[in-house]
Amino acid sequence: MSDTIVEQIDLCNELLAEMRKLEFKPTAFTAVELNKFFIQAKGLPNHMQRSYLILALNQIFTSGPTVVPWEIRLGLNIAHDQQSWLTDLKLVLLPFLKMNQDQFFP
Rank of each mutant, 00 (worst) to 15 (best):
residue 102 D to K: 15
residue 31 A to S: 11
residue 97 L to F: 10
residue 88 D to P: 01
residue 82 Q to A: 14
residue 59 Q to T: 11
residue 65 P to R: 06
residue 81 D to Q: 09
residue 8 Q to D: 11
residue 35 N to F: 00
residue 75 G to R: 00
residue 28 A to N: 03
residue 28 A to D: 05
residue 54 I to N: 05
residue 66 T to F: 10
residue 77 N to Y: 13
residue 9 I to C: 02
residue 50 R to W: 05
residue 24 F to I: 06
residue 86 L to P: 00
residue 67 V to H: 08
residue 80 H to L: 15
residue 80 H to I: 13
residue 76 L to T: 01
residue 45 P to T: 10
residue 38 F to H: 00
residue 32 V to R: 00
residue 86 L to T: 11
residue 15 L to Y: 00
residue 30 T to W: 08
residue 98 K to W: 14
residue 29 F to W: 02
residue 105 F to H: 02
residue 74 L to G: 05
residue 43 G to A: 09
residue 31 A to G: 06
residue 19 M to P: 08
residue 16 L to A: 04
residue 67 V to A: 14
residue 97 L to D: 15
residue 42 K to I: 14
residue 9 I to R: 15
residue 60 I to P: 01
residue 94 L to S: 06
residue 82 Q to G: 06
residue 21 K to R: 14
residue 27 T to P: 05
residue 78 I to P: 03
residue 94 L to D: 12
residue 72 I to Y: 05
residue 76 L to G: 01
residue 55 L to G: 01
residue 27 T to K: 11
residue 42 K to W: 02
residue 49 Q to P: 05
residue 38 F to N: 00
residue 7 E to V: 02
residue 42 K to E: 12
residue 44 L to G: 04
residue 34 L to D: 12
residue 88 D to W: 09
residue 26 P to L: 07
residue 3 D to M: 12
residue 104 F to H: 10
residue 83 Q to C: 06
residue 63 S to C: 06
residue 34 L to Q: 14
residue 97 L to I: 02
residue 74 L to N: 08
residue 1 M to L: 11
residue 31 A to I: 01
residue 90 K to E: 15
residue 56 A to Y: 03
residue 51 S to Y: 02
residue 23 E to K: 15
residue 42 K to T: 12
residue 22 L to E: 07
residue 3 D to P: 03
residue 76 L to C: 10
residue 92 V to K: 13
residue 31 A to T: 09
residue 95 P to E: 13
residue 23 E to F: 09
residue 20 R to L: 06
residue 86 L to W: 00
residue 11 L to N: 07
residue 39 I to T: 12
residue 19 M to S: 11
residue 50 R to G: 01
